[in-house]
């Protein structure tokens, strides 16, 4: 399930502002309650793919420690794509919620 939504997850992680790869991964882990513990290299592939699609921009920066990091940020297109994907996701959640309502499965752990 995660594979199909990785791009949206990465875009959402950058919604609060530009961040480097490690911070994005930590943000995803933290915000998902450690539910998404993906191979970290996979997130970098997603970052490159989103940048190639024009949804992210990136640049090298130097941290206070002197270490160089590549910082990613949402582009205008990226912001629009995130809004669009969020709406689709909300409709999906609502639809599934409607289907599960009354089955006695809603809210029960899988």
């Amino acid at each position: 399930m995660l594979k199909g939504h990785l791009d949206m997850i990465v875009l959402a992680a950058l919604a609060s502002g530009p961040a480097h790869g490690y911070a994005i991964i930590e943000h995803i882990k933290h915000k998902s309650g450690e539910a998404f513990d993906l191979p970290e290299g996979t997130v970098y592939t997603a970052l490159h793919r989103l940048e190639q699609a024009g949804l992210l921009s990136s640049r090298w920066t130097t941290a206070p420690s002197g270490r160089r990091r590549r910082v990613y940020a949402l582009t205008k297109r990226g912001e629009r794509a995130l809004t669009n994907q969020s709406e689709i996701w909300q409709r999906f959640v609502k639809a599934i919620g409607g289907l599960l309502a009354g089955t006695g499965q809603q809210g029960k752990p899988a």
Binding site: H20, G21, Y22, I25, Y44, R67, R68, R69
Partner: peptide, 13 residues
Amino acid sequence: RVRQEAEAHLLEA
């Protein structure tokens, strides 16, 4: 580029 990013990531971790 991936090498540089991976290096920065690993050092951070």
